[in-house]
């Protein structure tokens, strides 16, 4: 039990220090280096710096995920992030363009789509981001199989603050990345 709670406290504290070290909080930046050191020390204590093939790390990670304690509890903290948006531009051979959004049938699954877009937005590794987007684009293309190319435009939604709303500012969509994908019309298999 002590071990279990040490893990919960260790992981939650490590994530809190990491957030402070990244400068996401309103605390003075002079404490960022201390927070970084504390987060690093906890990372070592939790065995997260061991090699991925290390059996101790694998066992610990397996336990953490099984108990649901692999992450901290900073929901919408310290600040509420912007939400991401993905728009597909479907370009047809005759030159006309249609627009579509990723969609699912259930509202609850729609919330999961938001999580996926957040995940894509946070992904720093560009090839992985591209693979995730190509899968979403392929799904859109299957519903519009006549399209020659699909452009996946990824951005974030900027919601006006209260004062900006008073000045008449509306919600805006800000561009982050765009990828063009061409799918072979004769094949049902997604491009690799």
């Amino acid at each position: 039990m002590l071990f279990h709670f040490a893990l919960i406290v260790g992981i939650s504290a490590q994530q809190t220090f990491w957030i402070v070290a990244q400068g996401y909080t309103s605390l003075p930046h002079s404490i960022d280096p201390f927070s970084r050191k504390a987060a690093d020390a906890l990372t070592i204590a939790l065995g997260q710096n061991l090699g991925l093939s290390n059996p101790a790390r694998q066992s610990l990670t397996g336990y953490l995920h099984s108990a649901g304690i692999e992450g901290g509890y900073g929901f919408f903290a310290p600040n509420v992030p912007s939400s991401y948006k993905l728009v597909f531009e479907l370009h047809y051979p005759d030159g006309h363009v249609e627009y579509d959004l990723p969609h699912v049938s259930g509202t609850a699954t729609g919330l999961r789509l938001v999580s996926l877009l957040d995940r894509i937005g946070r992904t720093q590794y560009e090839p992985l981001r591209e693979v995730m987007l190509i899968m979403l684009a392929y799904s859109a293309w299957q519903e519009h199989a006549g399209a020659a190319t699909v452009r996946a435009v990824f951005g974030y939604v900027d919601v006006p603050s209260l004062s900006e709303l008073k000045e008449g500012k509306k919600e805006s969509y800000n561009f982050l990345y765009a990828y063009d994908f061409t799918f072979p019309s004769s094949s049902n298999a997604p491009p690799r």
């Binding site: 709670f5 919960i8 406290v9 939650s12 504290a13 994530q15 809190t16 957030i19 402070v20 996401y24 909080t25 309103s26 605390l27 901290g72 509890y73 900073g74 929901f75 919408f76 903290a77 310290p78 600040n79 509420v80």
Partner: peptide, 15 residues
């Protein structure tokens, strides 16, 4: 612990 760390992290954000 869940509420303490969730609340603490929120307290660190000016928003």
């Amino acid at each position: 612990l869940i509420y303490f760390f969730s609340g603490l992290t929120k307290c660190l954000g000016a928003g």
